[in-house]
Design a protein around this nucleic acid. Sequence first.
DNA 1: CTGAAAGCGCTTACAG
DNA 2: CTGAAAGCGCTTACAG
Lengths: 340, 340
Amino acid sequence: MAQKIKLSTIADALGVSTATVSLALRDSPLVADATRDRIKEHARAIGYIYNRRAASLRTSRSGIVGVVVHDIMNPFFAEILRSIETELDRSRQTFLLSNHYDQLEKQRSFIDTLLQLGADGVIMSPAIGTPREDIQLMEDNGLPAVLVARSVEGAQVPVFRGDDSYGIGLATNHLISLGHRRIVMIGGTDQTSTGRHRYQGYVIAMQKAGLEVQPHWRIPGPRTKQAGFEVAGQFLALQDKPTAAVCWNDLVAIGLMNGIARAGLVPGTDISVTGYDDLEEAAIATPALTTVWNGQRDVGRRAARALLDRLNGIVVQPSQELIKPELHVRQSTGKPVERG
Amino acid sequence: MAQKIKLSTIADALGVSTATVSLALRDSPLVADATRDRIKEHARAIGYIYNRRAASLRTSRSGIVGVVVHDIMNPFFAEILRSIETELDRSRQTFLLSNHYDQLEKQRSFIDTLLQLGADGVIMSPAIGTPREDIQLMEDNGLPAVLVARSVEGAQVPVFRGDDSYGIGLATNHLISLGHRRIVMIGGTDQTSTGRHRYQGYVIAMQKAGLEVQPHWRIPGPRTKQAGFEVAGQFLALQDKPTAAVCWNDLVAIGLMNGIARAGLVPGTDISVTGYDDLEEAAIATPALTTVWNGQRDVGRRAARALLDRLNGIVVQPSQELIKPELHVRQSTGKPVERG
DNA sequence: CTGAAAGCGCTTACAG
DNA sequence: CTGAAAGCGCTTACAG
């Protein structure tokens, strides 16, 4: 890489100032058309590479937006990410992605990196236990934030998430209307707002139907296919032989169905199972999964737009935006079957 | 955010020079211990944020490593990414992730961004059709590259990938040894080196066993669960009723098994199916999937190390590093069963 | 419509 | 062990 090519290289070669080159490359109307064309053509010809660090140091805008989630490999976040990506691409923002794996330290170190790079904003699904001070720190340092999926008590920023209590209610009511009485909730944790909301939704639906809620009908924890699979034995061994399971998400539901099948029972027939999220995979599972569509695409799109608005100086009020979930009925639920 | 805090803010407050502050914050032995401690403590107390853009402009190292793959949501890449992440974290490099979805334009625009940000290096699984000039452009502009999963003809950079021809041979031979004669290969494309290598491996294994290879025994295309599911009908309708399918990857295999089950046949009994990659999911599929472990973790780890070596000035010879795959036999394969 | 000059916030020889 | 000064490559008033 012979000699580093910079604005002044072009300016010198064409006998103009760097100011003119800078303006020309950014299509400023201040530059005469002929001059602009000459400059752009020359820049292209010699392979000029714009130095964004220098520009960003000067303008204090970096064109970088950070996105932090629990785990990008989780298909639920994957769908949110895809719609965020689409939205940000449109505004030519580069997006910097990171997993925090629910470790506060990882999340903090990423936020630190964003601050150091002068990122323009951040979209995050906060790690379990994120204190509102961590959110405030970003805002105080000029890094506007928007939350998705989970909220942080007391944080003064917009939040976009599904209406979890309502959504799990849809699944629970569906099972109740099919005639199920002994319904277990599998997965999730009280440590997240989402976890608390979903469990509440289940409890409320059961109580409204006049059904008792047994403490041992909650198997907390599982959030992955693997975990759903592993918990099948424990579920099937419950004394009072529940006939249905409301699962934390589609991954847990699919894992559980695999575990049920492995135990010689037929999911959807012997045991009814519901998921949550309506991932692409839900429709092709065996049996096809009855689940709750969680509006991932909307969450991502609306969060990205809210952030872009903030970047463009539009004031976005801190608020909780609840996306309404929808029940999608498929073959994994049916009338209850009593097991010997 | 009152007044921007910078090195000189600290220098002024403590009556030292910015040079001393800069050195102290980076633990330079040139600074007296007492001075260093005083500076670091003050920096922490007033909430100083290091400006990496300024530093990077000066030093021309950014601490950023780009990672580009087809699709981060694909579990195959997910596992590679996780091991890259672990490796880079250790060297305190920030990693900038992007999907190219096999669109050359997306890939180019990301590479451009990396060049503009002054990234230190890049690890990529090149998009279909990537010309070697695109790789050369990065190298010429001081952005060292390392390839994973796919190679680019003629590119002078290190490549880490599985031995695809050998690996698919393991799966094919396994089916042949069970007694299968009519074996179909489903998925993949000749447009990628991986696709060509895997099909070759299948053909070679068939021929070595003295079996004829029928052109219609190849159903190219599918690479996702959804696509595997959809192609089941076409597969089951083949005139000569093949008894087994060698699939492009685990996703296709799992989708196909779901499709077979939906058609009323029992995968693993009526039809033998093999996958490729050995994703976590393979072990919990119903039936558990016989598949080829593709060394994702090794690929990621070794690629990251090679790049870090290059960043540290160690010369890494361009070479093709083939990771040896292993066959993992489970329940999705068995003796052939002739269908009416 | 174009140019000369200052400045973004660091780091790095160099001098003492 | 510490400081004064130059410079990384841009952009932005300002002047003409």
